[in-house]
């Protein structure tokens, strides 16, 4: 199995190649799409992208934790975290490696 890392640059190239936008337009489109997903998570807490997966903001309550470096106990404050639930299609693509 390869272990490459794909970045914004590669995704931008794919938009240039397959949609026929300019490089600048493609880069802006990617930035804006990600920015809009972030904004929707901030305001609504859910983004559902059919055939890909759902991003959901979950509330975590405060809990006792420990600093793994010092072993000191500390309270981890309540917070919101973004979780991703992959679609069945994405799950099967990843598990089959196809």
């Amino acid at each position: 199995m390869s272990s490459k890392t794909i970045t914004r640059a590669e995704v931008t190239e794919a938009i240039v190649r397959d949609v026929g936008c300019t490089r600048q337009e493609s880069s802006d489109l990617l930035d804006d799409a990600l920015e809009m997903i972030g904004a929707a998570l901030e305001s609504e807490g859910v983004v559902k992208l059919s055939r890909f997966g759902n991003f959901v903001v979950r509330e975590k309550s405060a809990r006792e934790g420990r600093n793994p470096k010092t072993g000191e106990e500390a309270t981890i404050s309540a917070r919101r975290v973004v979780t991703f639930r992959p679609s069945p299609l994405l799950k099967s693509r990843v598990d089959d490696g196809a």
């Binding site: 272990s3 890392t5 794909i6 970045t7 794919a14 397959d18 799409a33 890909f52 994405l90």
Partner: peptide, 22 residues
């Protein structure tokens, strides 16, 4: 199509076992 391509690129990369860092 652009949205589909973005999601497809991520899906294809993961199917190959690659990482996607945005």
């Amino acid at each position: 199509k652009a949205v589909a391509i973005i999601l497809d690129e991520i899906t294809d990369a993961l199917a190959r076992g690659d990482r996607v860092e945005l």
